[in-house]
Design a binder for these strands. Structure first.
Lengths: 236, 236
DNA sequence: GACGTTACCTGCGCG
DNA sequence: TCGCGCAGGTAACGT
């Protein structure tokens, strides 16, 4: 019986954000706990991070407009703006996020009637500048499951988006499973038949060197799965 | 003993605003009284104008922003905004100024928390338009010493600013005083050894023709001093 | 809509 | 060098 671990790649139309798992972009505290991106698992680590959404930045998002447009459905799902009973209240509020270093970022969040869009304004340009974000780079948002008032923001470089599109990497055992190839199916694609250890820090994938973190998932069974969140280290 | 009047030029780092003394921009009533720019004299004509400050206009001050930024230290010195007991009150109020024709100008005056600056807003653009003010032109503010609720606003053209920098001209008598030359000392610089009469309307200074007004000052003694507020008439 | 008014926001220069 | 002031913006809304 085959017991060596294999790596499966699940093709995803909307891959989960890998951002939060880049060790360079995670606070030390957050790096020490088991993370998961899944929102369907019924077994959560109390400090699990719940990813909310990510957005590839447009030129405007990183330009002189000093604002980030938040896609409406994400905004309304994750950052509801209560229209205050006070008429002077315009519904704008300040959201506070933690970044990979634990630094707090306060952004003004409001709805622009003129453009029918939700935006982060005040504070946003400082974030863009500090992280050296450029068009095509991706920002991700998440929150702590236990204390849902704790919000997180992360980012990754444009070039890393390719790795992101590679989707979740599932490390499991192949016993009895038929190996799948190709990107269209429901089943994982085995892209490498042997991985030295589950918590390997580096992976060569599609000719690209990746750093990644793996996190324990208790489902689905019978395949013990992990998710890896790759980050491009170098392109040979 | 030499008794003919001499003109002294006091070099000044911050020359007093000459604006209010341009007959073209002063009301007839104001032209008939002796003006002085000094705020230290103990003998004031009851209708004396106390100059407050002047500001060279920026492109923004005369542009589409429809506001004049008042330099903070001037604003806080001359136009204190009482922070109302009501928290919703932002301290905005309406200031009313008289111009050179006696016309009343009402400007909204308020503090912008966001930019930490004091501004004249509503009404300002009308003033800019009527006076045809452009970037570099200078506006001046003053108040009546006797009735300090009377505020005045004046202006002069950009090109007239050079004469302003010539500083105060002091007309006196040289008896017994050693003549000083150069700009660095505490003593006045005699720039012309004879002036036909104290109330001369024109002065040629540094190759520049100036119109000027002189005002009676009772101090300091023993030199009877005057202050002249020159305005460039032509540059040969 | 166009425009004016108010109320925000930020880069940058300067002391 | 770093905080502050302000020049130069934008957003929202009333008219």
């Amino acid at each position: 019986m085959e017991t060596s671990p294999h790596i499966y790649i699940y093709p995803q139309q909307n891959p989960h954000p890998p951002y939060f798992f880049h060790h360079h972009h995670l606070s030390k505290e957050m790096q020490t706990i088991p993370w998961t991106l899944t929102t369907t698992s019924s077994h959560h680590h109390p400090n699990q991070l719940e990813p909310m959404f990510e957005k590839p930045l447009t030129p405007s998002d990183v330009g002189k407009l000093n604002r980030l447009v938040i896609p409406k459905h994400h905004a309304e799902t994750h950052f509801p703006l209560v229209s205050s009973s006070s008429s002077s209240e315009k519904g704008g509020l300040t959201l506070c996020f933690e970044d990979e270093s634990g630094k707090q970022w306060r952004f003004r969040y409001s709805y622009w009637n003129s453009s029918q869009s939700y935006v982060l304004t005040k504070g946003w340009s400082r974030y863009v500048k500090e992280k050296r974000l450029d068009a095509g780079d991706v920002v991700s948002f998440g929150r702590c499951r236990r204390d849902r008032s704790r919000l997180f923001i992360g980012w990754r470089r444009r070039d890393e988006a390719a790795a992101s599109a590679a989707a979740a990497v599932v490390v499991g055992q192949t016993q009895g499973r038929r190996q799948q190839h190709g990107w269209g199916g429901d089943h994982p694609v085995i892209i490498e038949s042997a991985v030295p250890q589950v918590y390997s820090k580096r992976l060569r994938l599609f000719g690209v060197n990746l750093d990644y973190y793996v996190t324990d998932r208790t489902e689905p069974d019978p395949v013990r799965t992990y998710q890896a969140y790759p980050r491009i280290v170098s392109i040979p």
